[in-house]
Design a protein around this nucleic acid. Structure first.
Lengths: 382, 382
DNA sequence: TTGAAAGCGCTAACAT
DNA sequence: ATGTTAGCGCTTTCAA
């Protein structure tokens, strides 16, 4: 057994081949035979061993009723003894159904997309399906997207979960995509579209909840640090903010809006910008909690007391929000649930389609978020 | 198109079926035929269309040299025209190689495991493989683990990446697992073992780096908030802490050690505990940045100035660390790289095994972390 | 350079 | 209740 230590050379390019390898330690000649190249057991071998035809074994495997109890017992015994496991690939080929779903996701380093994918995975497995994961960059080119999709389709996934942010209002792009979707597909973030099913959280409602909360605290100049406006969810949150301002008779002011990129760094920069632009700023709705964190630090460095002078609320309700200084109010989404709902909806569509009931009609389901109040938003109206 | 709004009933159980459904809006009868149930194109159809046999098409698909340029061109044209995509399932069945890898992962809600999986996914796709994702709980039972594994193996993955924390020092459990691993497997976190390949970051070195940094700042009473000691990485970080204390002539004191569960909440609680136990505490090495965040808040609430009175360092170097109050020093790991390295190593082993060179010998590769100094650890020795 | 035959492991459809 | 036949879409092997 040898132990090798690697030190990454960060100034060089990021690929493995350019890593500086530093061998430190011992080789010792232990050699345990792990797994001999044993050919795996097939249904025919089980059948022979049990003295029946492969078909009968297949019936047992698929829990068909038309097998005598005695035969079933005997076959189950042989299966156990030979440690036989059905080959899902072969089964998928003949049934034209692989019992696998593909998910195209982006931005897993962010809380929302990640939780959604985790919810998707758990429901997928709970329902007996496998999940093929395909990650694309947030700003993926059409080529990258198509490649990721073709990859999943070549694997004969039974359905696709589209968990990447919609890129811009590019309807043409979407249409080209829809043409390639030869299997049922559910989108996780997308403007409602008559031909597609969308399961999402209600970002506009969430943005509204956050902003109304601030105005109710007495804030009169509420800014918004929004996410990239090319992304549907970020756009909706901003509209929710505007709705809330209009509800108190204000016209959303461009000076109150700064676009960030979801990172704490961008939230930090946004506050410095806003403070300069808007001297009487008294509330900030950050489009996510990371940007909220950056806002908290910037305010602290500028000597602004949160929440007495400036109320701040984030979005996502990440676990860390409760431990920021001060603890950050936020909007909780039910991402895990919406991932699970999407999987169920997708499998429902797969089943329907197989039964020939292909409606072709899209449905949009929006899961409602809720407000979590912590100290950062308890503005003390002067 | 209908839009449905869902409000989650959190007091009820978490399953979809118990969600309270609230239908708000419009149905409109747009019905676009998305994808007709077109049977997909097969190699035989391409062959007929091109006036050749299926084998010749196969040769073109697999870039075999023994096809005349003219025939190749013609076939490629037909493939393009019919929009033919080879069926990877059928190919996998006959070749006994699916070009897919399975990853068993846990704890994706934590930064480290997530980045590792992202690294794995990217390298997997870059090398032309698919990735099947199987998540298990951090404290998975043997049954859950076996089920997840069997699931992947039934799908005929060519190899497995084990990215779940080793649970306890249970060698018997590992042996039972190894017996089931009928395909090459690489572990991401595991004590070195002669029969398995392990790609990991050097957590002991990291723990040591963190602690040495604190002692070099002049801290004399350095506590450690460790992760669950049943997990290999947490255990190694603790040993690194002990190494560093011994290096300055101290004997690690049980009073200086508190076990957390990686959450900010546990870091928060740990500081309150430590302050009570150790009045002259002057340094804390938190086993990850979330616990470090909790520690920062607790210290702040107790009126302890960081770093002047108490130096704190975390681990993982999450992006948010730079925006904590004060910015949190940390240990950066090259998780993305180690994920990528693991994939390469796994595919190497798959290739070797197919060539008959099954060494059966394990190798351990440790990627070295490095220290990131920010304000939280700049202790001012009294 | 190309084609015909066989078969990967399994199940659907029809036998009996 | 059980077996036989055929074939999913592709590649391998061998022959031409």
């Amino acid at each position: 057994m040898s132990i090798v230590f690697l030190r990454c050379l960060l100034t060089a390019s990021k690929t493995y081949s350019t890593l500086f390898v530093n061998v430190h330690v011992n080789v010792n000649g232990v050699s345990i035979m792990t797994n001999s190249r044993s050919e795996s057991v097939t249904i025919v071998q089980v059948a022979q061993e049990a003295g029946v035809s492969a078909q009968t074994v297949s019936r047992v495997l698929n829990n068909r009723p038309d097998v005598s109890a005695a035969t079933r017992e005997r076959i189950l015994g042989v299966i156990e003894r030979l440690n036989y496991k059905p080959n899902a690939i072969a089964r998928g080929l003949v049934q034209r159904k692989t019992h696998s779903l593909g998910v195209i996701a982006a931005g897993l380093e962010k809380y929302g997309p990640l939780r959604t994918v985790i919810g998707i995975e758990q429901e997928t497995r709970a329902l007996g399906y496998s999940l093929l994961l395909s990650l694309i960059p947030d700003d993926a080119t059409e080529n990258q997207v198509v490649e990721a999709l073709e990859h999943l389709l070549a694997r004969q996934v039974d359905g696709v979960l589209w968990s990447a942010p919609e890129i811009g209002p590019n309807r043409a792009w979407l249409d080209s995509l829809l043409g390639r979707l030869t299997v049922p597909t559910v989108f996780m973030s997308m403007h409602p579209h008559p031909a597609v099913t969308v399961i999402d959280t209600d970002n506009r409602m969430g943005g509204n909840l956050a902003t109304v909360h601030l105005t109710e605290q007495g804030c009169r100049r509420v800014a918004h640090i929004c996410g990239p406006q090319s992304q549907w969810s970020a756009l909706q949150r901003r509209l929710g903010w505007e709705d809330a301002l209009r509800a108190v008779g204000q016209t959303p002011d461009a000076a109150l809006l700064v676009e960030g990129d979801w990172t704490a760094a961008s939230g930090y920069a946004a506050i410095r910008e806003l403070i300069e632009r808007v001297p009487d700023l008294d509330g900030v709705f950050a489009g996510n909690d990371q940007m909220g964190l950056g806002a908290l630090l910037a305010a602290s460095e500028l000597g602004i007391r949160i929440p007495e002078q400036l109320a701040i609320i984030g979005y996502d309700n990440i676990p860390e929000a409760a431990y920021m200084q001060p603890p950050l109010s936020s909007i909780r989404q039910h991402l895990h649930d919406s991932g699970a709902i999407a999987v169920r909806e997708l499998i429902r569509q797969i089943t329907l389609q197989r039964a020939g009931n292909n409606s072709g009609e899209g449905q949009t389901i929006l899961v409602e978020p809720d407000l979590i109040v912590r100290r950062s938003s308890l503005y003390a109206k002067p």
